[in-house]
Computed example of a mutant assay.
Amino acid sequence: MSEFELVWDAKCGVAESPVWDAPNDRLLFCDIPGQRIYVLGLSSGSRDIWDFPEVVGSFGLCRSGRLVVALKHHVVLFDPRTRESRDLTPKVAEPDTSRFNDGKVGPDGAFWVGTIDGNAPRQPTASLYRVTADGAITREETGIANSNGLAWTPDGRTMFHADTAAGIIEAWDFDPATGARSHHRVLAKLTNDQGRPDGAATDMDGNYWSAGPSAGVLHCFSPSGTLLRRLDFPVPGPTMPCFAGDRLFATSLREGKSDAVLAEFPSLGGLFAAPAPARGAPVDVFAD
């Protein structure tokens, strides 16, 4: 039986990108189509919501205390104190049917963020980008349909990524000083029934924890791609795990679910938590 319990019944269309902000003792996550970031005080239980003018694909913490936030086609810096944003990058050359999706700050201090193709079926026209504090944005990978699953081992030497549409989890050797990558390899390939890889996190052993929304599970893979554990999730559609101290949080999606599924699982789109099965890797911050 799953140990996950509902923490915030937010009923997000697509809850995603949970981030542990340890210095401020809070857990942040976004609703992509809802155009907002949710803020949960872990000790106090306080709740807040920050609204944005566009879809919020993902975000990360900044050294300055701001957030680096991926909107539809560009990245902004958001100040939680004033709730004001300023553009960091120009708009990327992406079709209107695409948008930014999963993103995470790497050990190189840059914000890595991918796009997702909005066609049905998804086409391999999306990309993976690297954003630095000076506003420079470079296209690092192409030929992706749904960029997802960004995470790094705690030593910063391995970078993970997934293409949900293709069902693959891949990795590179990573230079945390420069962001350079080498030695690409595919670690796993998953079907719909197994749970194609969505958002992810890593633990202190370098294991890769991947949400499998199509099967309602979380997978734990070794750094070399061996499946170590499979955890059942209490509702269909877990989207991303996040370690936060002694708890493992995970977001979920509501969008696209039938009335029958919503009637059976009314808490879809919420934030869930369970006792952490491992210690999470450190959360990197954007070097602004």
Rank of each mutant, 00 (worst) to 15 (best):
D102M: 06
V68R: 07
C62F: 01
C30L: 12
F29S: 05
F52T: 03
E84W: 04
A93D: 15
F78M: 02
V56C: 05
L27C: 02
P90C: 05
G34T: 07
D31F: 10
E94D: 12
I37A: 05
S46T: 15
C30E: 05
V76I: 15
D87N: 11
V68D: 01
F29P: 08
S85K: 01
W50M: 14
R63I: 12
G60H: 13
V92H: 03
L88I: 11
H73Q: 12
R63G: 01
G34E: 08
E54L: 06
H73Y: 03
L88D: 03
F52A: 06
D102I: 09
F29A: 05
R81I: 12
L40W: 15
E94K: 01
L28P: 13
R86C: 13
R47S: 09
D51R: 15
L27Q: 01
G60K: 12
G57V: 08
F59M: 11
T97Y: 10
L67M: 13
R81P: 00
S58M: 11
P90D: 15
E84G: 09
H73I: 02
T97D: 01
L28S: 11
V68L: 06
R83V: 10
G60Q: 02
D51I: 03
I49E: 14
N101L: 07
D48F: 06
L88F: 13
F29I: 01
S64W: 07
V39W: 05
R47C: 12
F29N: 00
V56D: 04
R86M: 14
L28H: 10
R99E: 00
